[in-house]
């Protein structure tokens, strides 16, 4: 039984132009319920594309995506939001700046559900969100009426995480969500991420640049390279992993690539 199933998913951007990028090539991936997958890779490896393909930012060219037993390949992005909670890389992307903290959270409390003409922030909602915001330990529970735009990036990212997990999502997508934060705040958000995922037993797919995060968090690591899954590490192999091992694997890939370049050049000189 898997929660998320990607079967032979491919995506090419700008096909038939000089800017053609084969971002995903035949990617097959199964994610068990309550597992925490970390996707790493260099720039342009396709790791963010993989996440966006699941989120529905674009339609894939071929292959199928299944989430929680539903075939979501043809679903629109906002329809998939019923099943998916998301935190973006940019701390400003996950919240509406001119609206209050309370209003933002109230919007998240109806993620993927019908919205009616009842007051968005009623008394019961206010009490519930005060409790949940208090659990962040950021002192924001006394500032629920303030516009979110007045908060720091770290605070906004913490709130986005709270919003994404408000209604327990079938899948939590984290897109390098600490990359734009300073190291101390990033640590704080990572700790919070860990707590939320542990508490609600969330199935999680997280993309990151940080080798440290990759080895500290999660129970499975997938390393992407040029649109394919290069390594898929779980269980004991994953448990023994240190950041240096990951780095050396990257180094290996890089060296192989350089050699490819050199060989290509040699061949060009010989035959052209």
């Amino acid at each position: 039984m898997s929660m998320l199933k990607l079967h032979r998913v491919s995506k090419t951007f700008n096909p038939g132009t000089p800017n053609e990028v084969r971002a995903l090539i035949d990617v097959t991936l199964n994610l068990a319920p309550a597992s925490f997958l970390i996707v790493i890779g260099t720039n342009g490896s396709g790791k963010s594309t993989l996440l966006n393909a699941v989120a529905g930012s674009f339609k894939v060219d071929s292959g199928t995506i299944e989430l929680a037993g539903e075939k979501i390949t043809r679903w629109e992005e906002h329809e998939r939001a019923k099943l998916i909670g998301r935190v973006f890389q940019n701390p400003f992307s996950g919240t509406a700046p001119t609206m209050s903290i309370a209003e933002n959270l109230a919007l998240a409390a109806r993620r993927g559900r019908s919205r009616g003409l009842g007051l968005a922030v009623n008394r019961r909602m206010k009490n519930e969100l005060r409790d949940r915001v208090r659990s962040l330990n950021m002192g924001l529970e006394d500032r629920l009426g303030n516009a979110i735009g007045t908060l720091s990036g770290g605070q906004r990212q913490a709130l986005t995480l709270l919003m994404a997990s408000w209604l327990r999502p079938e899948l939590l997508l984290l897109d390098e969500h600490t990359a734009a934060l300073d190291p101390k705040t990033a640590d704080q958000v990572i700790r919070l991420t860990h707590d939320v995922i542990e508490r609600d037993k969330l199935t999680t797919l997280m993309v990151t640049h940080s080798m440290q995060q990759a080895v500290n968090l999660g129970d499975r690591i997938v390393m992407m390279y040029k649109g394919r899954v290069l390594h898929d590490l779980e269980g004991s192999e994953r448990a023994r992993l240190r950041p240096e091992d990951l780095l050396s694997r990257f180094e290996e890939v890089r060296r192989r690539e350089q050699m490819d370049g050199a060989v290509a050049e040699m061949l060009t000189q010989a035959y052209v």
Binding site: A55, E77, H78, E79, A81, K82, I84, R86, F88, F92, S93, G94, T95, A96, P97, T98, M99, E103, N104, A106, L107, A108, R110, R111, G112, R113, R115, G116, L117, G118, L119, A120, V121, M163, A164
Partner: peptide, 21 residues
């Protein structure tokens, strides 16, 4: 209201409101 706040968020941050369904 719930609908009204969703509409305001649509103008304020389309990416966010899309991710909220």
């Amino acid at each position: 209201t719930e609908v009204g706040t969703a509409l305001r968020a649509t103008g304020d941050n389309p990416q966010m409101i899309c991710a909220l369904g």
